[in-house]
């Protein structure tokens, strides 16, 4: 069970942003994506998660294996922490939400409405969602936004435990999580002005 990316090219708004990306992710491995704002990290993660089609290249081993966490957590303000988490566990065919609550110290908040949580607490709940998906590949887009030092440490522990259990993680982040992970800087893969990869605007040039 490996995630293999070969010669991938991704596009945003009809324009290629990254090209020629290749990497593999084996069980127990994590990969940190770096690159300046607008370099295409989010586009890459959305493509790998299957939300948008790639322009070129191959993605093997991603189908039905990915748990994706974007900037917004998909939380409902009018549902409690327990209800929010139970919902996503049900959708992914899991039932036990206790480990996820423990991992992010959410037990004391279990019956609070998500709308009453602070930004950091919401983020922790959003990350706890990854644990109830039961999916092996985590794809996280700037997961530590609005987390305090303790919560970042909780997150790093959760990722490490996930890796130790044979999981994989692909994280776009700027801070050092203290993981023994490879770092992939996407800057060299940025598409140039004369890139021809099949993007929709090319037919008109």
């Amino acid at each position: 069970m490996t995630l293999t990316i070969r010669d991938l090219c991704v596009a945003r708004g009809g324009l290629p942003v990254l090209q020629g990306l290749s990497f593999t992710l084996a069980p127990g491995q994590a990969l940190i994506l770096r690159g300046p704002n607008g370099s295409g990290k989010t586009t890459l993660l959305r493509t790998l998660a299957g939300l948008q089609p790639p322009l070129a290249g191959q993605i093997d081993g991603a189908e039905e294996q990915i748990a994706y966490a974007a900037h917004s957590d998909g939380l409902k303000a009018m549902l409690s922490v327990r209800e929010n988490l139970t919902f996503w566990a049900d959708v992914f065919g899991q039932s036990d939400i206790v480990p996820a609550l423990d991992a992010f110290a959410l037990m004391p908040l279990i019956d609070r409405l998500a709308g009453t949580l602070s930004a950091g607490q919401k983020r922790r709940l959003g990350l706890a969602r990854m644990l109830v998906t039961g999916r092996p590949i985590w794809m996280l887009d700037e997961p530590t936004v609005s987390l305090d030092v303790d919560a970042v440490a909780q997150f790093a522990v959760a990722v490490r435990r996930h890796l130790a259990a044979g999981g994989m993680a692909l994280i776009a982040t700027h801070i050092d999580l203290g993981l023994e992970a490879e770092v992939l800087d996407v800057t060299p893969f940025r598409a140039t002005q004369d890139t021809r990869a099949g993007a929709s605007d090319e037919a008109f040039l």
């Binding site: 009809g14 324009l15 002005q193 605007d201 090319e202 008109f204 040039l205």
Partner: peptide, 17 residues
């Protein structure tokens, strides 16, 4: 419409530099 799209595509490529 094709000319409009062409203008748009050229502008998008320019803007990226």
């Amino acid at each position: 419409e094709i000319r409009l799209r062409r203008t748009r595509a050229l502008q998008a490529r320019e803007a990226r530099l």
